[in-house]
């Protein structure tokens, strides 16, 4: 087990190397010059070639690309992601400052997705072919096909402006978390509900489910004890992927609800060509995403005793 985890952590190295290379390359390929943007945004004054060149020198942009990349990677290896061009503070401080809010939103969204999607899918499976099934699946389609920005605005309109139940913007409080969490969660709930339904239906045809019925167990016991644990194995994969998607997909939600999250930070820094910040934040998200996937793989062993890691 320990060896397995260690091996998986070692596998992160080539992946992160590739991620860093791609992020670096894409940022340099995008049109625009961070030094120019910075000067034009600054306290007026004429933009002279001298000032521009001075700034570029200062930011290390005059060095060859290979040297720039090497500096970035060597720094990152020592835990130093550099300083943000725009904010003039260490990138890692900015990321950690914002990540809490994003993580909170993703976890709350995932929690809602499971809390809504699981029962919906299970009820639909138990009533396969009936009107309850159709109702559950219609709800799930509606949930998973609504655009985030539209659903977010709709929730704000109803629960914030009309009913005044929750704040429409900001972060930091539990009340402010609810609407964005629903915006994110309803989407994943729809996806999860359909997967759980099909997984339960598949499990229902297994021989061991017939054995459970032949043993005269209560229907509830058969579904929850014998069916659910087996049906959760493929669902767990999806939950892991969804969590990754939620973490990375908070951008729109954070924008709609003006939450100070990592997603918004990345978008803003792409627009302002804040190379170190974008690179650092993407690298950070990649690490988180990979760690979540590792956690999911380890969780399989909890569900399925046939899976053993190591040895």
């Amino acid at each position: 087990m320990r060896r397995y985890v260690l091996g998986r952590l070692l596998q992160l190295i080539p992946v992160l190397f590739l991620v860093s290379l791609i992020v670096f390359a894409v940022m340099r390929l995008l049109p625009g010059d961070p030094a120019l943007l910075m000067l034009s945004g600054a306290e007026g004054g004429a933009i002279t070639p001298e000032r521009l060149n001075e700034l570029r020198e200062q930011m290390g942009l005059n060095e060859p690309l290979a040297a720039q990349y090497l500096n970035f990677v060597l720094g990152a290896l020592q835990g130093d992601l550099g300083s943000s061009i725009r904010f003039q503070v260490p990138v890692i401080d900015l990321i950690l400052d914002r990540f809490g809010s994003t993580f909170e939103l993703a976890v709350a969204g995932l929690f809602l997705a499971i809390a809504i999607g699981m029962p919906l899918g299970m009820i639909a499976a138990a009533r396969q072919g009936g009107w309850i099934d159709s109702l559950c699946m219609t709800l799930s389609y509606i949930g998973s096909s609504m655009p985030v920005y539209w659903l977010g605005l709709l929730l704000v309109l109803v629960f914030s402006f009309t009913l005044h139940w929750f704040p429409s913007a900001g972060g930091g409080s539990f009340e402010a978390l609810i609407l964005p969490a629903f915006t994110l969660g309803l989407l994943s709930a729809g996806v999860l509900a359909r997967l759980i339904r099909s997984s339960m239906l598949e499990v229902a045809t297994e021989d061991y489910m017939r054995t459970a019925r032949a043993k005269g167990l209560f229907p509830r016991l058969i579904i929850f004890r014998h069916g659910l644990k087996n049906a959760m194995i493929p669902v767990l994969t999806m939950i892991g992927l969804q969590f990754g998607a939620l973490l990375a997909g908070t951008v729109v939600t954070e924008t709609v609800f003006s939450r100070p999250g990592l997603g918004r930070l990345i978008v803003d820094s792409i627009l302002s060509k804040d190379y170190p910040l974008v690179q650092g934040a993407i690298l950070f998200l990649a690490v988180v995403y990979l760690l979540v996937n590792l956690a999911v793989d380890l969780a399989y062993a909890l569900l399925d005793p046939r899976i053993r890691y190591g040895n």
Partner: peptide, 30 residues
């Protein structure tokens, strides 16, 4: 009545036992 007055043994013991529950659990629940 099932499992109490009439017991049933199935063909394929590879698939007719639940893979994710212990033997103890599958027996004691009866």
């Amino acid at each position: 009545m099932r499992g109490k007055d009439i017991g049933m043994v199935f063909q394929d013991p590879m698939t007719s036992l639940n893979p994710v529950l212990t033997i103890g659990r599958q027996l004691s629940e009866i």
